[in-house]
Design a binder for these strands. Structure first.
Lengths: 151, 151
DNA sequence: TATTGTTATACTCTATAACTATA
DNA sequence: TATAGTTATAGAGTATAACAATA
């Protein structure tokens, strides 16, 4: 019940969404730690899907991080055999990033556990609200951030 | 389009909500700066509604901040005549916090500008998704964070 | 002894700048 | 000259610890 107007109107979207995001992240952390993953490491595993990412900078941008910040994360994931960093034959400056089978398996395991918790939360919502919520969320998440920030 | 599974399933809620929250905050910042407000200052103005808050610590907890962190924020808001900090006669340790008329007016002005931008974003959604989205969001935002984190 | 508000300190996270190797 | 990746440094944000006043 934070950030509400006196009695009319609705709370700001951000005032509802940001705390909700914080709580969801807090819910994920124990699951991630159980699998030895930090939040950024999990974000990397999520992003590194079948089509290999072309550069580390692009990966960083996609997950909302800084290119300098994910280097340690990538080092760790590579050492643990969860991702591959192959030099791009076409441009030897770049590193092609991809999941190893072990990385994909870990990602699927962790994601299943996380989404299972999320489903318990969603189950509290009326069916039609839940459907609209997920539809809207996926639509908004698909927008480039600049469109939301109102470039 | 971040954090999606290969083809089946949906992205994690957190993977959609957190970036969305970041983008919404980024959209607010120019509006806030135009009115000389930092993000935490705005959060304080939002929380300080008609029933005065009993302690600074409670206020901090409500807006997801640390009690030590909002002190400077409160100092600034008080100096600018936007809030009052009155010693509680019943417990002279505590300070009763409330909005001044100027504070309420600024809050309303800023909130109107922010929600106007948000409405433009929501207008992109189909009517039924938008309704479900807002219903679900308000329901989830009303839950105590511990219920979401799955205490 | 516990709590409110405060200050000072330490720590984490994040961004900036500078370097290398390729192009 | 520009870019990918890397490293080192500096800055912002945040939490922790310690204090005085009151209960």
């Amino acid at each position: 019940m934070a950030g509400n107007t006196a009695s009319k109107g609705r709370p700001d979207l951000a005032a509802m969404i940001v705390p909700l995001g914080r709580a969801l992240v807090a819910a994920e952390l124990p699951v991630l730690r159980r699998h030895g993953l930090a939040m950024w490491a999990y974000a990397v595993l999520l992003r590194l899907d079948d089509p290999p990412v072309r550069t580390q900078a692009a990966l960083a941008r996609d997950i909302g991080a800084d290119k300098t910040r994910i280097i340690g994360v990538l080092d760790d994931l590579e050492e643990r055999g969860l991702i591959r960093r192959q030099p791009d034959p076409a441009d030897r400056r770049a590193r092609l990033l991809s999941l190893t089978p072990a990385g994909r398996q870990l990602r699927d395991t962790v994601q299943a556990a996380i989404q299972q918790r999320e489903e318990r939360l969603l189950a509290r919502l009326p069916e039609e609200d839940r459907r609209g919520f997920l539809n809207a969320l996926q639509a908004l998440a698909a927008l480039p951030p600049s469109e939301i920030s109102g470039a």
